[in-house]
Simulated assay, not measured.
Amino acid sequence: MSTVLDLVREDLRAFAGYKSARSDRLEGAVWLNANESPWSNAGNPDGSARRYPDPQPQRLRERLSALYGCDPGQLLVGRGSDEAIDLLVRALCRPGNDAILITSPTFGMYAVNARLHGCRVVDVPLVDESAGWRCDFDAVAVAAREQGARIVFLCSPGNPTGTLLPLEQVVSLAETLEGRALVAVDEAYLEYADGPSAVARIGTQPNIAVLRTLSKAHALAGERIGSVIADPALIDVLRRCQAPYPLPASCVALAERALSSEAQAATAAAVGTVTIERDRLARALASVPGVRCVYPSDANFLLARFDDPQAVFDRLLAAGTVVRDLRAAPMLGDALRISLGTPEQNAAVLDVLTAQVTA
């Protein structure tokens, strides 16, 4: 019977990694084991930055585990979702031999990490339909088997599509690819969606991994706190492949405060406002001449097609509003992505587009 460890590179299954001075949980009054300065920096008089941080801060991991509904042993925290993607590619894919699978248009870092690691990128594009973007799960399964993909990256809700993938089809794909590939579900925007996480299915389908982040709904993009949630055996391998001290202590302290009950209540209220604004802006944009299509979204942004996307981009930029130009992405030659701002900022976007039409 196969296990998730069968998907790990054979040369890394027993890899010990680097054992730092903070790897062992030792107790002492005088710490002389990490070659740290015994004096504080003049710019940091309280000495809080003098010591190396905990590689995997226990209290933060416990709070994140409670937030995401998993056991602490299933979670590894690191530098945003980007590090989690990199760790998965490094641990599972042999350079020059293995492949990952993506479904474009999607988050660009999956392909970037694979190419930096010398791995092939297999693309099974999403299907652009009137009701939104659809993943052809059957085609993904066939391509993954035929091309030897070790990881299938699924973004749900998708970036930049905003599409929430049906969880049962994700799980069915993982069942089909069991023993062949890991299905990594990037749930960076799930807080904005009305749908379940794949985390609860890891226990029965261990070739599922989930990526989560505090960068979006929790408004901590500058702190770079991300998590990968997976079978404990895979988490142990990823931990041994991770750099010794991934998270600055100051970032950890802020993240712990941001996960207090009061802060989470404020986050939930902000998410509620964003979803209301998302639906309102989508309806309003769809009625503006020159807007070809506004896709349904389960994220905190809208993807739209325009008759003249350059003119729209330039007009918004001249008004001081920066949106994401996606015309270089596959299948999106006329598209812009607009993040949801405050109600006032969203109204300003509409004012600019309406003025463009009437001018």
Rank of each mutant, 00 (worst) to 15 (best):
T106R: 04
S104D: 06
A255M: 13
R145Y: 10
E10R: 09
G28M: 01
C241F: 15
D82Y: 12
L220H: 02
E187N: 10
D54M: 03
S287D: 09
R145I: 10
Q310L: 10
P248A: 09
A282M: 07
L302Q: 13
N113P: 09
E36P: 04
R278M: 11
S65H: 05
R201D: 01
A286Y: 10
A221L: 15
A84W: 00
N113K: 11
V8F: 05
L238K: 03
E277M: 11
S48R: 06
R315W: 01
L154R: 00
R90W: 03
R9V: 12
E223A: 11
G80R: 01
V291Y: 04
P248K: 05
T103H: 02
A263F: 09
S156R: 07
R305F: 08
L12S: 07
I202S: 01
D298K: 05
D24K: 12
P53H: 01
L154G: 01
I100F: 04
T103F: 01
V349P: 02
L317F: 14
A139M: 06
D136I: 10
P53I: 03
A282Y: 02
L12T: 03
G195I: 12
P160E: 05
I85Q: 06
W31F: 12
I276W: 15
E36R: 09
V170K: 00
A181K: 04
V170Y: 04
V291W: 00
N346P: 11
L76E: 03
L32P: 06
C251D: 08
Y68L: 09
A328L: 13
G148C: 13
T267L: 10
T213G: 04
L220Q: 03
E187T: 05
R292C: 12
S260P: 06
P72R: 02
P57R: 10
S197H: 01
L173I: 11
S37D: 03
L254G: 11
Q345E: 14
D351A: 09
G118C: 15
R25F: 15
D325F: 12
L326C: 08
V185Q: 11
A198K: 02
P55D: 05
I100Q: 03
D308V: 13
L332Q: 09
P309R: 06
A329T: 08
L234G: 12
F107G: 00
S215L: 08
T176L: 12
R90I: 08
M109H: 14
A217D: 01
M1T: 12
A181T: 05
N113C: 08
D236K: 11
P244I: 07
V142W: 14
A184L: 03
A16S: 11
L247S: 00
V323Y: 03
C293R: 13
L165P: 02
T342Q: 10
G203W: 13
E83L: 13
L316M: 14
A144H: 06
I100W: 00
A209D: 02
F137C: 07
V210N: 01
E187I: 09
P157R: 01
R145G: 03
C293Q: 11
G96C: 00
G43W: 02
A111I: 09
E178P: 13
R257N: 15
V8H: 06
E62I: 05
R305H: 11
V357Y: 03
L7F: 04
A253H: 07
G222P: 14
L167R: 06
R283L: 08
A328C: 15
